[in-house]
């Protein structure tokens, strides 16, 4: 009898946790789909909100916080027109807080280090003259760590390439320096297999775009 109670309880719990997991997957899939469609800052804001809600409820999963951070990072990038620095700083700060949450859950994750490098890159935009050297250094260190943690991850190569592409020749940047990075990224994008339907899988289009530009120059 006791045994029966135990098994039924156990099965109930697993049904519940399965349902819970199903709910998580569904919610994430929906949000990832809207992330892929998001074109404007407003779209990204709504998507970020969706990820934030999941992230706040799921404190064992790194993906929701990671995506939330990524949304804010992209909002910062889209707002970076030189006229609304405070907004850019606010988005970067928010992206960093969310990424710290993801990092606390998964300490050694190549994707998280990649995004960290991207956020550091954003700090350069705040004030290129005064922050350029320091944050480029930090950004490249994070990309280096991301490459070491997962040599098949194309994104650190793509983002490092992008940063190098826009960096003045004087500081070791330029199209010719960026080209091999885009090529390395391209090679990895071609064979990259995402771990699940909700794992990071972005950047390929932009990389092809930059690869073309860098080749043309």
């Amino acid at each position: 009898m006791k045994n029966l109670i135990f098994t039924s309880l156990l099965s109930l719990i697993s049904i519940f946790s399965f349902a819970q997991n199903e709910m998580y997957l569904k919610a994430m899939e929906k949000s990832v789909a809207s992330f892929q469609k998001a074109a404007t800052v407003a779209d990204l804001q709504l998507t970020a909100n969706g990820f934030e809600r999941i992230a706040k409820a799921e404190n064992k999963a790194w993906l929701p916080a990671y995506y939330q951070s990524l949304c804010y990072m992209m909002m910062a990038a889209k707002s970076n027109d030189g006229k609304q620095i405070t907004t850019v700083i606010n988005y970067l700060d928010k992206a960093q807080v969310a990424l710290d949450q993801a990092q606390a859950i998964d300490e050694n994750n190549s994707e998280i280090y990649t995004l960290q490098g991207y956020i550091h890159q954003g700090r350069v935009w705040e004030d290129p003259m005064n922050k350029g050297a320091e944050y480029t250094q930090k950004s490249f260190a994070a990309f280096g760590k991301a490459m070491a943690l997962d040599p098949t991850n194309p994104r650190p190569y793509y983002l490092k390439g992008q940063h190098t592409f826009f960096m003045p020749v004087f500081f070791g940047g330029g199209a010719d320096k960026a080209l091999p990075l885009f090529q390395q990224a391209e090679k990895r994008f071609a064979t990259f297999k995402k771990a699940s339907s909700i794992h990071p899988n972005w950047g390929q289009d932009m990389n092809s775009h930059f690869l073309q530009r860098a080749t043309a120059q």
């Binding site: 709910m23 919610a27 407003a42 804001q45 709504l46 970020a48 909100n49 934030e52 809600r53 999941i54 706040k56 409820a57």
Partner: peptide
Amino acid sequence: IGANIYIQDTY
């Protein structure tokens, strides 16, 4: 516009 409103610990 775009504020996030949610019930804590739920989706």
